[in-house]
Nucleic acid binder design. Structure first.
Lengths: 111, 111
DNA sequence: GTCATATTTCGAAAATTTTAGAATTAAGCC
DNA sequence: GGCTTAATTCTAAAATTTTCGAAATATGAC
Protein backbone atom coordinates (compact mmCIF):
# COMPACT_ATOMS: atom_id res chain seq x y z
CA UNK A 1 0.00 0.00 0.00
CA UNK A 2 2.42 2.65 -1.17
CA UNK A 3 1.19 6.08 -2.15
CA UNK A 4 2.14 8.20 -5.11
CA UNK A 5 5.01 9.87 -3.27
CA UNK A 6 6.60 6.54 -2.41
CA UNK A 7 6.25 5.27 -5.93
CA UNK A 8 7.72 8.40 -7.47
CA UNK A 9 10.57 8.27 -4.94
CA UNK A 10 11.31 4.67 -5.85
CA UNK A 11 11.46 5.52 -9.53
CA UNK A 12 13.59 8.60 -8.98
CA UNK A 13 15.90 6.56 -6.82
CA UNK A 14 16.21 3.99 -9.57
CA UNK A 15 17.26 6.77 -11.93
CA UNK A 16 19.59 8.24 -9.33
CA UNK A 17 22.64 6.24 -10.28
CA UNK A 18 25.01 7.10 -13.14
CA UNK A 19 25.07 3.57 -14.52
CA UNK A 20 21.29 3.14 -14.40
CA UNK A 21 20.72 6.55 -15.94
CA UNK A 22 23.12 5.61 -18.72
CA UNK A 23 21.26 2.34 -19.19
CA UNK A 24 17.98 4.16 -19.53
CA UNK A 25 19.44 6.59 -22.04
CA UNK A 26 20.65 3.73 -24.21
CA UNK A 27 17.40 1.85 -23.89
CA UNK A 28 15.30 4.90 -24.70
CA UNK A 29 17.37 5.71 -27.76
CA UNK A 30 17.61 2.09 -28.82
CA UNK A 31 15.20 0.09 -30.98
CA UNK A 32 11.53 0.01 -30.03
CA UNK A 33 11.70 -3.78 -29.74
CA UNK A 34 14.20 -3.37 -26.94
CA UNK A 35 17.96 -3.47 -26.48
CA UNK A 36 19.66 -6.79 -25.66
CA UNK A 37 21.30 -6.90 -22.25
CA UNK A 38 24.48 -8.07 -23.90
CA UNK A 39 24.67 -4.98 -26.04
CA UNK A 40 24.20 -2.78 -23.01
CA UNK A 41 26.93 -4.70 -21.29
CA UNK A 42 29.49 -4.26 -24.06
CA UNK A 43 28.63 -0.59 -24.45
CA UNK A 44 28.80 0.24 -20.78
CA UNK A 45 31.68 -2.14 -20.13
CA UNK A 46 30.60 -3.44 -16.75
CA UNK A 47 30.34 -7.02 -15.46
CA UNK A 48 27.21 -8.84 -16.55
CA UNK A 49 26.10 -9.56 -13.02
CA UNK A 50 26.37 -5.92 -12.06
CA UNK A 51 24.41 -4.87 -15.09
CA UNK A 52 21.76 -7.46 -14.37
CA UNK A 53 21.23 -6.02 -10.93
CA UNK A 54 20.80 -2.52 -12.26
CA UNK A 55 18.39 -3.73 -14.90
CA UNK A 56 16.36 -5.47 -12.23
CA UNK A 57 16.23 -2.24 -10.24
CA UNK A 58 14.91 -0.35 -13.25
CA UNK A 59 12.41 -3.10 -14.01
CA UNK A 60 11.22 -3.30 -10.41
CA UNK A 61 10.59 0.42 -10.50
CA UNK A 62 8.50 -0.13 -13.62
CA UNK A 63 10.69 2.04 -15.82
CA UNK A 64 11.72 -0.69 -18.25
CA UNK A 65 10.17 -3.90 -19.49
CA UNK A 66 11.77 -7.14 -20.57
CA UNK A 67 11.03 -9.64 -23.31
CA UNK A 68 12.91 -12.75 -24.19
CA UNK A 69 13.91 -13.36 -27.78
CA UNK A 70 15.72 -16.64 -28.09
CA UNK A 71 18.62 -16.57 -25.67
CA UNK A 72 18.74 -12.83 -25.44
CA UNK A 73 16.65 -10.59 -23.24
CA UNK A 74 15.57 -7.31 -24.71
CA UNK A 75 14.97 -4.35 -22.44
CA UNK A 76 12.79 -1.51 -23.57
CA UNK A 77 11.64 1.69 -21.91
CA UNK A 78 8.20 1.88 -20.34
CA UNK A 79 7.27 5.26 -21.71
CA UNK A 80 3.99 5.30 -19.88
CA UNK A 81 5.74 5.14 -16.52
CA UNK A 82 8.37 7.64 -17.57
CA UNK A 83 5.69 9.97 -18.73
CA UNK A 84 3.77 9.61 -15.47
CA UNK A 85 6.91 10.23 -13.48
CA UNK A 86 7.87 13.38 -15.35
CA UNK A 87 4.30 14.62 -15.06
CA UNK A 88 4.42 14.10 -11.33
CA UNK A 89 7.77 15.83 -11.06
CA UNK A 90 6.42 18.75 -12.99
CA UNK A 91 3.53 19.21 -10.67
CA UNK A 92 5.91 19.33 -7.76
CA UNK A 93 8.29 21.60 -9.55
CA UNK A 94 5.91 23.98 -11.19
CA UNK A 95 2.85 24.42 -9.07
CA UNK A 96 4.66 26.99 -6.95
CA UNK A 97 7.11 28.28 -9.50
CA UNK A 98 5.25 31.32 -10.70
CA UNK A 99 3.47 29.59 -13.56
CA UNK A 100 0.44 27.37 -13.54
CA UNK A 101 -0.21 24.49 -15.93
CA UNK A 102 2.30 21.84 -16.88
CA UNK A 103 3.99 23.29 -19.92
CA UNK A 104 7.75 23.09 -19.41
CA UNK A 105 8.43 26.25 -21.38
CA UNK A 106 6.40 28.31 -18.92
CA UNK A 107 7.56 26.55 -15.81
CA UNK A 108 9.94 27.02 -12.96
CA UNK A 109 10.13 30.75 -13.18
CA UNK A 110 12.25 30.77 -16.30
CA UNK A 111 11.59 33.42 -18.98
CA UNK B 1 34.92 16.97 -12.94
CA UNK B 2 31.53 15.32 -13.13
CA UNK B 3 29.59 15.20 -16.38
CA UNK B 4 25.93 15.91 -16.99
CA UNK B 5 24.91 12.31 -16.38
CA UNK B 6 26.56 12.24 -12.97
CA UNK B 7 24.99 15.52 -11.98
CA UNK B 8 21.52 14.48 -13.08
CA UNK B 9 21.95 11.17 -11.26
CA UNK B 10 22.94 12.97 -8.07
CA UNK B 11 19.88 15.17 -8.24
CA UNK B 12 17.55 12.29 -9.05
CA UNK B 13 19.04 10.34 -6.18
CA UNK B 14 18.40 13.28 -3.87
CA UNK B 15 14.76 13.21 -4.95
CA UNK B 16 14.63 9.44 -4.63
CA UNK B 17 13.61 9.31 -1.01
CA UNK B 18 10.05 9.72 0.26
CA UNK B 19 10.98 12.20 2.96
CA UNK B 20 13.10 14.33 0.67
CA UNK B 21 10.49 14.30 -2.05
CA UNK B 22 7.91 15.39 0.53
CA UNK B 23 10.25 18.15 1.65
CA UNK B 24 10.61 19.39 -1.89
CA UNK B 25 6.86 19.36 -2.40
CA UNK B 26 6.34 21.49 0.68
CA UNK B 27 9.15 23.85 -0.25
CA UNK B 28 7.93 24.27 -3.82
CA UNK B 29 4.40 24.98 -2.71
CA UNK B 30 5.54 27.17 0.16
CA UNK B 31 6.27 30.90 0.13
CA UNK B 32 8.75 32.26 -2.41
CA UNK B 33 10.90 33.59 0.42
CA UNK B 34 11.40 30.03 1.59
CA UNK B 35 9.97 27.70 4.20
CA UNK B 36 11.50 27.61 7.70
CA UNK B 37 13.14 24.32 8.60
CA UNK B 38 11.10 24.25 11.78
CA UNK B 39 7.88 24.36 9.87
CA UNK B 40 8.99 21.48 7.69
CA UNK B 41 9.91 19.58 10.81
CA UNK B 42 6.54 20.01 12.49
CA UNK B 43 4.69 19.17 9.29
CA UNK B 44 6.69 16.06 8.50
CA UNK B 45 7.04 15.06 12.12
CA UNK B 46 10.61 13.80 12.03
CA UNK B 47 13.57 14.57 14.32
CA UNK B 48 15.29 17.86 13.57
CA UNK B 49 18.66 16.23 13.00
CA UNK B 50 17.22 13.81 10.48
CA UNK B 51 15.49 16.62 8.63
CA UNK B 52 18.65 18.67 8.62
CA UNK B 53 20.52 15.85 6.92
CA UNK B 54 17.89 15.52 4.21
CA UNK B 55 17.88 19.26 3.66
CA UNK B 56 21.65 19.19 3.29
CA UNK B 57 21.33 16.43 0.70
CA UNK B 58 18.87 18.50 -1.31
CA UNK B 59 21.04 21.60 -0.97
CA UNK B 60 24.20 19.73 -1.97
CA UNK B 61 22.40 18.53 -5.08
CA UNK B 62 21.56 22.15 -5.86
CA UNK B 63 17.81 21.60 -5.70
CA UNK B 64 17.13 23.98 -2.81
CA UNK B 65 18.77 27.09 -1.46
CA UNK B 66 19.02 28.41 2.09
CA UNK B 67 18.84 31.85 3.61
CA UNK B 68 19.00 32.81 7.24
CA UNK B 69 16.37 35.10 8.66
CA UNK B 70 17.08 35.76 12.28
CA UNK B 71 17.28 32.44 14.05
CA UNK B 72 15.36 30.58 11.39
CA UNK B 73 16.69 29.15 8.16
CA UNK B 74 14.41 29.39 5.18
CA UNK B 75 14.67 26.80 2.42
CA UNK B 76 13.41 27.58 -1.03
CA UNK B 77 13.38 25.62 -4.26
CA UNK B 78 16.02 26.28 -6.90
CA UNK B 79 13.66 26.33 -9.84
CA UNK B 80 16.48 26.76 -12.31
CA UNK B 81 18.04 23.46 -11.27
CA UNK B 82 14.68 21.71 -11.18
CA UNK B 83 13.90 23.02 -14.60
CA UNK B 84 17.27 21.86 -15.95
CA UNK B 85 16.79 18.43 -14.42
CA UNK B 86 13.32 17.92 -15.85
CA UNK B 87 14.55 19.14 -19.23
CA UNK B 88 17.34 16.60 -19.09
CA UNK B 89 15.00 13.84 -18.07
CA UNK B 90 12.70 14.72 -20.90
CA UNK B 91 15.42 14.43 -23.45
CA UNK B 92 16.23 10.98 -22.16
CA UNK B 93 12.61 10.00 -21.96
CA UNK B 94 11.30 11.44 -25.18
CA UNK B 95 14.01 11.37 -27.80
CA UNK B 96 13.18 7.77 -28.57
CA UNK B 97 9.56 7.76 -27.57
CA UNK B 98 7.98 8.38 -30.94
CA UNK B 99 7.80 12.16 -30.60
CA UNK B 100 10.51 14.73 -31.11
CA UNK B 101 10.77 18.03 -29.27
CA UNK B 102 10.37 18.50 -25.56
CA UNK B 103 6.68 19.17 -25.15
CA UNK B 104 5.32 16.87 -22.48
CA UNK B 105 1.92 16.59 -24.07
CA UNK B 106 3.39 15.04 -27.19
CA UNK B 107 5.93 12.89 -25.43
CA UNK B 108 6.46 9.31 -24.46
CA UNK B 109 4.16 7.79 -27.01
CA UNK B 110 0.98 8.86 -25.31
CA UNK B 111 -2.07 9.96 -27.34
C1' DG C 1 21.88 -35.51 -24.85
C1' DT C 2 26.04 -32.31 -25.35
C1' DC C 3 27.74 -27.91 -26.33
C1' DA C 4 27.76 -22.96 -26.70
C1' DT C 5 25.73 -18.52 -25.84
C1' DA C 6 23.08 -15.16 -23.09
C1' DT C 7 21.75 -13.79 -18.87
C1' DT C 8 20.40 -14.27 -14.15
C1' DT C 9 20.85 -15.69 -9.35
C1' DC C 10 23.85 -16.75 -5.38
C1' DG C 11 26.98 -15.27 -1.94
C1' DA C 12 29.61 -12.15 0.30
C1' DA C 13 32.60 -8.00 1.03
C1' DA C 14 32.97 -2.95 0.82
C1' DA C 15 30.81 1.33 0.69
C1' DT C 16 27.12 4.33 1.44
C1' DT C 17 22.82 5.86 3.41
C1' DT C 18 19.57 6.49 6.98
C1' DT C 19 18.40 7.47 11.49
C1' DA C 20 18.33 10.00 15.72
C1' DG C 21 20.03 11.36 20.53
C1' DA C 22 23.44 14.46 22.42
C1' DA C 23 26.32 18.35 21.98
C1' DT C 24 27.13 22.60 19.57
C1' DT C 25 26.60 26.87 16.99
C1' DA C 26 23.89 31.13 15.78
C1' DA C 27 20.81 34.96 16.66
C1' DG C 28 18.00 37.91 19.35
C1' DC C 29 16.29 39.62 23.80
C1' DC C 30 16.59 40.92 28.67
C1' DG D 1 26.72 38.14 30.38
C1' DG D 2 22.71 34.83 30.71
C1' DC D 3 18.53 32.85 28.64
C1' DT D 4 15.63 31.04 24.90
C1' DT D 5 14.63 29.53 20.34
C1' DA D 6 16.15 27.55 15.83
C1' DA D 7 18.85 24.61 13.53
C1' DT D 8 23.15 22.23 12.62
C1' DT D 9 27.01 19.12 13.48
C1' DC D 10 28.84 15.19 16.08
C1' DT D 11 28.76 10.37 16.88
C1' DA D 12 27.48 5.99 16.13
C1' DA D 13 24.44 2.02 15.13
C1' DA D 14 21.36 -0.22 11.79
C1' DA D 15 19.98 -0.84 7.25
C1' DT D 16 20.62 -0.66 2.48
C1' DT D 17 23.17 -0.44 -1.76
C1' DT D 18 26.81 -1.51 -4.80
C1' DT D 19 29.93 -4.58 -6.67
C1' DC D 20 31.39 -8.76 -9.00
C1' DG D 21 33.21 -13.67 -9.29
C1' DA D 22 31.21 -18.13 -9.27
C1' DA D 23 27.42 -21.04 -10.00
C1' DA D 24 23.02 -21.75 -12.01
C1' DT D 25 19.25 -21.30 -15.52
C1' DA D 26 17.34 -20.88 -20.25
C1' DT D 27 17.38 -21.35 -25.10
C1' DG D 28 18.80 -23.02 -29.46
C1' DA D 29 22.02 -25.75 -32.49
C1' DC D 30 24.20 -30.02 -33.45
Amino acid sequence: MTGPVEQAAEQLKALGHPVRLSILRRVVQGPVAGTPAGELQSRLDIPASTLSHHLATLADAGLVQVAREGTTLRYRADFGSLRALTDYLWQDCCSGGGASGSDPSSCCGRD
